[in-house]
Design a protein around this nucleic acid. Sequence first.
DNA 1: AAGTGGTCTAGACCACTAT
DNA 2: TAGTGGTCTAGACCACTTA
Lengths: 239, 239
Amino acid sequence: MAKNKYQLVYDELLETIRGGKLEAGEVLPSENVLSDLYGASRETIRKALNLLAQNGHIQKIKGKGSVVLDTQRMSFPVSGLVSFKELSQSFEAAAVTKVHQFALVKADDAIASQLTCGPNTEIWKIVRSREINGEKIILDKDYLDKRIVPYLSKEICENSIYEYLEGELGIKIGYAEKEITVEECTNEDRAYLDLRDFQHVVAVKSYVYLDDTTLFQYTESRHRLDKFRFVDFARRGQV
Amino acid sequence: MAKNKYQLVYDELLETIRGGKLEAGEVLPSENVLSDLYGASRETIRKALNLLAQNGHIQKIKGKGSVVLDTQRMSFPVSGLVSFKELSQSFEAAAVTKVHQFALVKADDAIASQLTCGPNTEIWKIVRSREINGEKIILDKDYLDKRIVPYLSKEICENSIYEYLEGELGIKIGYAEKEITVEECTNEDRAYLDLRDFQHVVAVKSYVYLDDTTLFQYTESRHRLDKFRFVDFARRGQV
DNA sequence: AAGTGGTCTAGACCACTAT
DNA sequence: TAGTGGTCTAGACCACTTA
């Protein structure tokens, strides 16, 4: 559970916002009031509020207060680091994962360059398709460094790999670099996806790092054009 | 100028990283050392370091220090809020902006719903194409609320609107919501862009807000498929 | 054991917004 | 003028890494 005081404040405030107890446009209690309310220093309260601001839930206005933003407008953010399982829960749609390939392979040149590891490094290779409302829409190709993930199974891949890594293995994921481009369909895309007559797919390539800056995963997620949507919340300056 | 102490520290540290004085993998001086160095309290130093971490320049590791990340790997980030002009400067390519439409119009229903303003509100409508290396690749359609931007000219649009808003008018942009999807080409796309025989474009829709949560701009940026690239840096937890 | 970053405090002064 | 958020300080204790 949230053992840090600022995370606790963050969670509770987010809940009151999400729960609709505060409408968009209303202001949160002032920092001093919250400070008394939670028995926390003002800086600790500010830490929680700044997190809410970063994630697009409030806007802090000098002299006024912390205004609640309309978070429904764009609905859920696909931004940041979220796994497919977390995503599909927002969908509320029937999502089915099918594992097409699951193997432990030696890194060839292509993989080695993506994971910046030596050739012959042992790598888990997983190919999965994601079916939503009866159509195979997304093709996920994952490569995981076995030195970091010693064990894996087909069953885990049918569920959520992230859930396993963070929950079971206690692996702490630090950050990721993502690139979104549009590429021509490959034969692999056509084999595993319901592509209709689209000539292109949206390719999302992710490099995932541990807390200690170790690169341990490369993922290529290929989406059918018409079903792709990416939402982002961005701030101009820094918080 | 950076009048805040933590911004000054941020700028200087970023410069030493960018300038190559620190290689990827090396560690910054510890927070206590930087604290002495800059004559600032440790919390102030931490504020600067957390900004560097958020923006993907360093990774802070407990017990070790602040490790410099390889920021070249993905090259420039298109993420966050950047205008086309800032972007094209990174390109180093010949970028030409052509203004196709520049007019003050009354909001019709379509625009009014995007800008959540009443009908008949006065809106600047600008349509521009962006040419890179001799090809018209991007079509930008901007709608700006005249109540916020009282004056605008074709010349300004040929340059950077953001530069004008922030520099000349002193408008403080707070945040933006962005959505990336793929759409079928319209006749407008075909008229203004060198589309070859692509059937789709990447559509980036942005809603831009002021510091005080006023929505004042809606922009639709339409990119030719093969030239689109979006790079993102994401952290799992919060900083 | 020494050094690192992570959390938290109690207080200060400032700039801005409301009235 | 009173209240708000923004910056900054000096100090404390903790968890973690390294030697």
